[in-house]
Computed example of a mutant assay.
Amino acid sequence: MSAPRESARDLVATLAAKHLNLGHRELRPGEDLWNLGMTSLTCMGLMLEIEDALDVELPADRLNAETFASVDGIVAAVESVQLGVPGEETRART
């Protein structure tokens, strides 16, 4: 019997803590990642690892400071992609 699949929220929180070098400190879902040391370079590495781990590709309109301000923001973007909700960029082309 395999272990239960880690939720997207848990995975994002774990990866964010890793990229921010927070050790085993747990992130609160709405905690401001930029105030914890997020930089554009950190954000890029986090985004790439999340996309690989969850097999998603975040559209360009979701790659911004607001999306990556918190675990909740990142999870909302990931879930909208997984559910097939079009982003602003996609809606503009249709």
Rank of each mutant, 00 (worst) to 15 (best):
M1Q: 08
M1A: 08
A3P: 08
A3G: 05
P4G: 01
P4N: 01
R5P: 04
E6D: 09
S7E: 02
D10L: 03
V12W: 00
V12M: 06
V12Y: 02
T14V: 12
K18L: 09
E26T: 14
R28A: 15
R28M: 15
G30R: 13
E31A: 05
D32R: 14
L33H: 02
L33T: 06
N35T: 14
L36V: 14
T39I: 06
L41I: 10
T42G: 14
M44L: 13
M44D: 11
G45R: 10
G45M: 02
L46N: 06
M47L: 06
E51V: 07
L54Q: 07
L54D: 04
P59N: 06
P59W: 03
A60M: 01
A60G: 05
D61M: 12
L63G: 03
L63H: 05
L63Q: 12
N64E: 13
A65C: 05
F68C: 01
A69E: 11
S70R: 05
V71Y: 01
D72A: 00
I74H: 03
V75M: 03
A76C: 07
Q82H: 12
L83N: 07
G84W: 11
P86G: 05
G87L: 02
E88R: 15
E88H: 12
T90M: 11
R91G: 00
A92T: 09
A92W: 10
R93P: 08
